[in-house]
């Protein structure tokens, strides 16, 4: 594992702790998009089905289990939050889920000549999870644009997700050059996903960094 991948993963991990800290210490899910969190849970469950059939490393296994468990817990907390004033969580997620699923059925890494049907279904779900992750942040972005007083911690959460994506891009450049490793589906979707965060970082710069006490 190279340093870019590791920094990316740690930033991803930090994003979970930031969001959990916000939910637990402020006892409020205001400004957190339940739709985005439910999409992330879907992403992790679909992608990490290989937990059952492929062992890569303890690092990977534990991170996967943590991502699934933490996002399930976050969805539970946000969904059951009584003081949930998320009327602005209005993104039509079917416009994300259905195209991602259709695309995954046609553009994936299945090899029907090899492997059984279950492995190929896993490949379709893997591609679906990649496409869905690329756009899963959109409901959260829409909320950020609509809410005036977004708490800083939600913004830091988004920033750590953006850093995670940026370092994964660097990781892929490194791996393509030194290892010949490359998954075009993941790379193209990853570039799209990272570009979506560019919009967020403009907002972050304007609303958080410019307001920081000196």
């Amino acid at each position: 594992m190279n340093i870019f991948r590791f920094v990316g993963d740690m930033s991803h991990l930090a994003s979970f702790f930031l969001l959990l800290a916000k939910l637990i210490y402020t006892k409020s899910s205001t400004g957190v998009s339940l739709k985005t969190q439910a999409l992330y849970l879907t992403v992790f469950v679909c992608r990490y089905l290989d937990l059952l059939v492929a062992f890569v490393s303890w690092y990977n296994e534990l991170m996967k289990i943590f991502f699934i468990a933490a996002s399930a817990y976050i969805v539970y907390v946000v969904a059951t939050s009584t003081r949930n004033s998320n009327a602005s969580d209005t993104y039509r997620v079917e416009f994300l889920v259905i195209p991602a699923l259709v695309l995954a059925c046609f553009v994936n890494e299945t090899h029907w000549s090899k492997g059984g049907w279950s492995l190929n279904v896993m490949e379709i779900l893997w591609a679906f999870s990649i496409y869905l992750e690329a756009v899963a942040v959109l409901p959260q972005l829409k909320m950020l644009h609509q809410l005036e007083d977004t708490t800083n911690i939600t913004m830091h959460y988004m920033a750590s997700l953006g850093i995670y994506r940026a370092f994964y891009l660097l990781n892929w450049v490194y791996r393509l050059y030194y290892e010949g490793y490359w998954h075009p589906i993941a790379v193209v979707a990853g570039i799209v996903q990272t570009l979506l965060y560019a919009d967020f970082f403009i907002l972050y710069y304007q609303s958080v960094l410019l307001r920081l006490p000196s």
């Binding site: 991803h12 990977n60 890494e109 490359w182």
Partner: peptide, 10 residues
């Protein structure tokens, strides 16, 4: 390498 490379990322 490329095609069919193991998926060892998160």
């Amino acid at each position: 390498a490329a095609e069919g490379a193991a998926k060892d990322e998160l």
